[in-house]
């Protein structure tokens, strides 16, 4: 008996069907495009916090500190600068320009004021030319 190895016919060239892979790739692309939440750009304000160390504010102890208060008056957030009560942002910006800048400014916010107004006060101080803006939480 003679056993003969069956002759296998090899294909001349191997072809790989890429269609399914491309489908899958596009599906993944669409999935990630749809599921991605494009985050909006952010910027930052850098108010220095009031530190517990006395040296941080010791040098300016002889001067009257300039304090910008943010609080509610008759239900609306207002800005208080010394004896002045400023009802809007424009009035605040005008008042801040007049202040002496090298002393810096303390921003103090009451607990019931929206954070947006606090950030607005800090931004207005920066825009007016204050290099040193210190945030002080109100008691």
């Amino acid at each position: 008996m003679r056993f003969r190895r069956p002759t296998s016919r090899r294909p001349e060239g191997i072809t790989l069907n890429l269609a399914s892979m491309i489908d899958l790739t596009f599906l993944m692309l669409i999935y990630f495009m749809v599921s991605t939440v494009l985050s909006r750009p952010e910027d930052r304000l850098s108010p220095t916090l009031q530190t517990v160390s006395e040296t941080a504010i010791g040098s300016s102890a002889d001067f009257q500190p300039q304090i910008l208060d943010v609080y509610r008056l008759q239900g609306k957030p207002v800005y208080g600068l010394g004896m002045q009560v400023l009802h809007d942002r424009r009035a605040l910006e005008t008042a801040l320009v007049e202040l002496y800048k090298p002393l810096g400014l303390f921003v103090r916010a009451a607990g019931d004021v929206p954070v947006g107004h606090v950030a607005g006060a800090i931004q207005a101080a920066r825009d007016a030319g204050f290099e040193q803006v210190t945030y002080v939480p109100a008691d």
Partner: peptide, 17 residues
């Protein structure tokens, strides 16, 4: 902020849009 100052943290940044 009060908690941070009690720990001696000197500054923080406030994110804005």
């Amino acid at each position: 902020v009060t908690m941070l100052t009690s720990l001696g943290v000197g500054s923080a940044r406030l994110a804005t849009e």
